[in-house]
Design a protein around this nucleic acid. Structure first.
Lengths: 211, 211, 211, 211
DNA sequence: GATGAATGAGGATTCATTCAT
DNA sequence: GATGAATGAATCCTCATTCAT
C-alpha cells in the first residue's frame, strides 16, 4: 500500500532517518545495511533510494536531521547569544544534560559515536568525512563563541586563552562521553555537577598570562 | 618449496598480526578485509586461516599481541609494581607518551581506536566484545593498582576516592586521545605536561571526605 | 497548473520520442534508462508511461516515428514510385546521403544502429524483434520495388536477379555504415560517388542468365 | 565439490570464457548477467571473480581468448606471411569461411557482433572500448599487410591504393556479416565465391592512378 | 495529462570461509 | 605450513513498473 501525499512522503523520510539513526548508533555505519534500515522503517530499500542518493547521502542528511531535531544544540546556541545574560549556566546545563542524554541513548551525543565510527572508518566516503569535519568545526566555533560570550559577561577571565580552553572543555566532554559508553563513569556521574564546576575552575586558570 | 621452519611460521604470524594492526587502525575493523591484510603481509588469505580461526579470532589475538609487544604498557606495570619508589612519575611519563605516540600513529593508543570501533560496531561478535571488555577491565584494574601504589608511596592522599580518580584519569586520557585524532588538541599539546600536572592536582582533591 | 491542451500532449510525446532516439542511438537501448529519457525530455518517468505502455512499446513507437519523420526514407519512396522517371538517380542520391547523414549522426541510419543493438541484444522482447524484422522486411521490399522500377525505366537490365541485387546493395550500404561508425571509411568517403557507381555496375552484372 | 589442480583451474577458466562468449553473442553484453554466465558454466559467480577482476575484464580477456582460439585468424596470418606464395588464395579462403562460420554461429565473426554491441553500448567501459579499437586496428593492419603481400607476389597491381582497398574489402566482409545475421544473404551465399572474386576485381581497379 | 512516491526484482561486486593439494 | 581455487551470502545500487493524487 504505497503512500502518496506529501505528508506521507515526509513521514517516510523521517521514518527512514530515525531508523538510520537508531541502527547506525547501535551497530555502527558499516554494519548497518540499507536492508536493515528499510526493514526497521517498514519501507523497501527502493524507498530509501527515492529519498537519498545513496548510503553516504543518507548519513549526511542524517547529520543535518539530528542537528536540527535535537534540542541540546539549541542550548548551545542560546549560550552563544550575546543577548543571553548568563551564558555560562546555559553551557553548564548543556554539558550536564550529557548524563541524561546518555542514559536516553539517543540524544545528540549518539551522533558523536557515529562520527567516531565514521572517522575511524575512512577510505572511500570523502563526502561524509568532509561533512563530519565541517560539523565538528562548527561545534568548535560555537564553543569558542560561547566562551567569548562568557568573557563578555564577566563569567570567565578577560585574558582567557580561548582556543586552549575550548580544547580542554571538548576533551572533558568527549572523554566523559566515551567512558560512559564503556560504562566507566559511574562514580563521575554521581557528582557530575561538581566535576563540571571543577572543569570550569581549571579553564579559568588558562589565561594568556599563565601559559 | 623450502620446508618452513618454526621460526618462519612465527614470522608469518607476526607479519599477519602487524599488518592487521596497521590496517585495522587505519581503516577500522569492518573496512579491512582479510584480503587486505594478506596482501599487506605478503601472504595468502589461507595463511591467515592457518594461524587464526577466523577474523574475530585474529582480532582477539591481536589484542594480546599488542598488549605484549608495546612498551607503554610496561611503564604502567612498572608503575603498579610495589617495588617502584616513584610510581606517580612513571604514570605521568606514560601519559605524556600519548603525545608522541599519537604523532607516531602506531603505539598502544592505536589499539583504543580499534576498541572503540569494535564497541561501536558489532552487536554480533560477542567473543570480541568480551575480549575488549576484559581488556578494558584489566587496564582499569591496573590503573587502580597504580593509584594504590601512589598512595602507598605517599604521592596521593591516603583517603583518595580511588575508583573516582581512576575514572577521572581515564576520561582525561580518552578525551585527549579522541580529540587528538580529530586534530583538536594543538594547544593542549603545547603545554601537555602542565595539563597532566593539573589533572593530578584535580585528582588529589577527590578524597573520600570531599565527595 | 494549466490545463494541458492536446497540442501540449503531442509536444510531450514528441519530446519523449526524440529524447529516446537520441539516447538509444548514443548509448544503446539497454544502457538507456527511462529515467535518462525523462530527464533529457524534461518530463517525469510517469509521463512516459502515460504515452507508452512500457519501454518496449516506446521503442516500437519510436521506429514508426523515425520512419515517418526522416526524409531520406521519402527519397526511397519516390524512387519506388512508378511515376518517377529516374528512380536510379533517386536511389543513388539516397545512398549518397549516407555520408552526410553519418556525419550528422541523426539520420535514418542511426536507426540501424539501434536495430542492430536490438537484434544483438534481447532474446526476450519478441515484440520489438518482430517490429524490427518487419521494419527490415519493409525496407527490403521497398528496395526490390525500386529495383523493379529501375528495370521498368530501362536503367537496369530486364533480366536482373532482383533479390540478389537487393542483397548486394544492402550489403554495400550496411558495410559502409558499420565501417563508418568505426572510422574505417575515410578513403571510401573521398570517392563515395565513384563507389556507388561501381556498386551499380556490379549489380548490373547480376542477371538471371549470368548466375 | 571444488576443483583444485591447476588443470581444473584452467578448465574452469575456459568454461567461463566459453559460456561468456556464447551468452554475450546470443544476448549481448548488457543483457548477459554474470549469474547467467556462472549458471551456464556450472560454477558460482565467485569463481568468475576469482578468474577475472570484473565483467569488463572478463570481456577483455574473452577477446584475447577468441583471438587465440579461433583458427580463421591463423589463415590471415598465413596470408600475411612473406613466405606464402599464394596469399590471395589464403585471403579468399578466409573470407569464404565466413559463410560456414556464420552458419556455425560461433566462429571469429561472433566476436564481431560482440564488438558491435560494445561499440553501440558505450558510456562507462573505456577499457573495453580501447581493447576493441586496438583489436580492430590490429585486424586492419593485418589486412594491409596481406594486401602488400599480394602485391609482392604479383597478385594485385603494384600501384594499388592499399588503404582504400582494405577499406573496401572490410566493407564487403562486414556488410555480408551483418546482413547474414539478419538473414538477408541467402542469394549472395549461393554464389559467394563469385562475389568474392568480383570483390577482388573491384579492388584491382583501385590503383593510385585511377583514383 | 502528468507527477511524485514507492516497489521489488535483479545486477555487479565484496568477502569471510572452506578445502584439496 | 601455506597456497590457490571456489563458494555463497550479503551489500549497495539501478531500474522498469505501478498507482494515488
Amino acid at each position: 500500500m504505497p503512500r502518496r501525499t506529501q505528508e506521507d512522503s515526509l513521514a517516510t523520510r523521517k521514518k527512514i532517518l530515525e531508523s538510520a539513526q537508531r541502527l547506525f548508533t547501535r551497530r555502527g555505519y558499516e554494519r548497518t545495511s540499507l536492508s536493515d534500515i528499510a526493514k526497521y522503517a517498514g519501507v523497501t530499500r527502493g524507498a530509501i533510494y527515492w529519498h537519498f542518493e545513496n548510503k553516504e547521502e543518507l548519513l549526511v542528511n542524517l547529520m543535518d536531521f539530528i542537528d536540527t531535531e535535537k534540542f541540546s544544540i539549541q542550548l548551545l546556541h542560546d549560550a552563544a547569544d550575546p543577548a543571553e545574560p548568563d551564558p555560562l549556566s546555559k553551557l553548564k546545563t548543556c554539558i550536564k544534560s550529557m548524563v541524561d542524554e546518555e542514559s536516553n541513548k539517543f540524544i545528540s551525543s549518539s551522533l558523536m559515536s557515529m562520527i567516531i565510527s565514521i572517522m575511524n572508518g575512512s577510505a572511500g566516503n570523502d563526502i561524509v568525512r568532509a561533512k563530519v569535519l565541517e560539523f565538528i568545526k562548527a561545534r568548535h566555533e560555537l564553543m569558542n563563541k560561547i566562551l567569548r560570550n562568557c568573557i563578555a559577561k564577566g563569567q570567565l577571565p578577560a585574558n582567557l586563552a580561548i582556543a586552549t580552553a575550548a580544547e580542554h572543555l571538548a576533551m572533558f566532554c568527549v572523554g566523559f562521553f566515551h567512558q560512559s559508553r564503556l560504562g566507566y563513569t559511574e562514580n563521575i556521574k554521581k557528582h557530575f555537577e561538581y566535576f563540571i564546576d571543577r572543569e570550569f575552575e581549571e579553564i579559568k586558570l588558562l589565561t594568556v598570562a599563565s601559559l
